[in-house]
């Protein structure tokens, strides 16, 4: 997914002179083709994330569309003030392309695990938050980002995830994608948890459930029109995300449902604590109860089949 995201930035740069790539001490060889063919718009800066956000803002104020790329935690936790003041107040078109969203860096520990990045970005006025589910959708997301007027946070998940998005469903910033219509119980996902939701659906179908799935690749602005018009068949909504239960998609849905719906809501996400285990992403997700079998079990205890 990361490679596809960056390759798409390169493709956009070849057709649009406003596009600039700025990495912060990214891995050797990143976008070598970009560096060789358009060196004047390819920047790899030092481990100076706060500076990099300001630099990108200055370029955006002068007519460019910078794609800033480094590890998600360093972009969001470390640079929150720069993002708020330099990018969001002026609504400047900088794209934050964040590596390692969620628990991708499980072996490296909580300094590198972006479990609250969506929350931090979502609460900033003017910020848009995109969390695509696979490489194909990532390409559509990056292409859609080019002419969006304000700042965008684009969260990249692990590589090699299975492709489940469908090109015919398109990609429009702020528009949810209904993956499957069901009744009674709806799972709302963002990012690569869509794949997990599909596994959950397989398990639940065998137990007689007709699960609905909706994918919010855009967490902000939340597609409230979809919620207002499409929740009719459902009494229960479960949110599913590789993010803290505080401040992410689950919180966004809770905020909307509290004011507009009478649905029961259950939030599946990372509990409000830092990881105390390493291993790998799948193991850590499982440890936090975010594997398909655990989720299906909990859902079955929560809702009877329709």
């Amino acid at each position: 997914m990361r490679k596809r995201a960056l390759d798409t930035v390169f493709a956009l740069a070849q057709q649009d002179e406003r596009v600039v790539y700025i990495g912060s001490d990214v891995g050797q060889g990143t976008l070598q083709g970009f560096q060789e063919s358009i060196p004047e718009r390819f920047f790899v800066e030092a481990i100076s994330e706060a500076y990099v956000i300001g630099m990108a803002a200055g370029m955006a104020m002068t007519g460019f569309v910078p794609y800033v790329n480094t590890i998600a935690t360093f972009l969001t936790r470390r640079c929150l003030d720069q993002i708020a003041v330099d990018l969001c107040i002026g609504n400047h078109p900088v794209r934050l392309v964040a590596n390692g969203g969620g628990l991708v860096y499980a072996p490296l520990g909580p300094t590198h695990e972006a479990i609250e990045d969506i929350a931090l970005m979502r609460c900033l006025p003017n910020m848009t938050v995109l969390v695509p589910c696979d490489a194909e959708e990532m390409e559509r997301a990056v292409r859609a980002s080019l002419d969006w007027s304000g700042p965008i946070y684009i969260r990249i998940a692990r590589g090699g995830e299975s492709v489940v998005s469908l090109p015919e469903r398109g990609f429009f910033i702020g528009k949810a994608i209904e993956v499957r219509q069901g009744e009674k119980l709806l799972i709302a996902t963002t990012g690569v948890m869509l794949q997990t939701a599909l596994e959950v659906q397989d398990i639940m179908a065998r137990a007689g459930y007709n699960l609905g799935i909706v994918h919010f690749h855009t967490v902000k602005p939340l597609d409230t029109a979809w919620l207002a018009n499409q929740l009719g068949p459902y009494s229960h909504v479960a949110s599913l995300e590789e993010h803290s239960v505080i401040g992410g998609l689950g919180s966004a849905l809770a905020e909307w449902l509290c004011e507009n719906g009478d649905h029961k809501l259950k939030r599946f996400g990372i509990p409000d604590r830092f990881a105390d285990r390493f291993g790998n992403q799948a193991k850590l997700l499982s440890y936090f109860g975010l594997d398909a079998a655990s989720i299906a079990k909990e859902l079955q205890a929560w809702v009877k089949p329709s």
Partner: peptide, 9 residues
Amino acid sequence: AIGIGMALA
């Protein structure tokens, strides 16, 4: 930092 971005631009 912002000024550097402008100067580079």
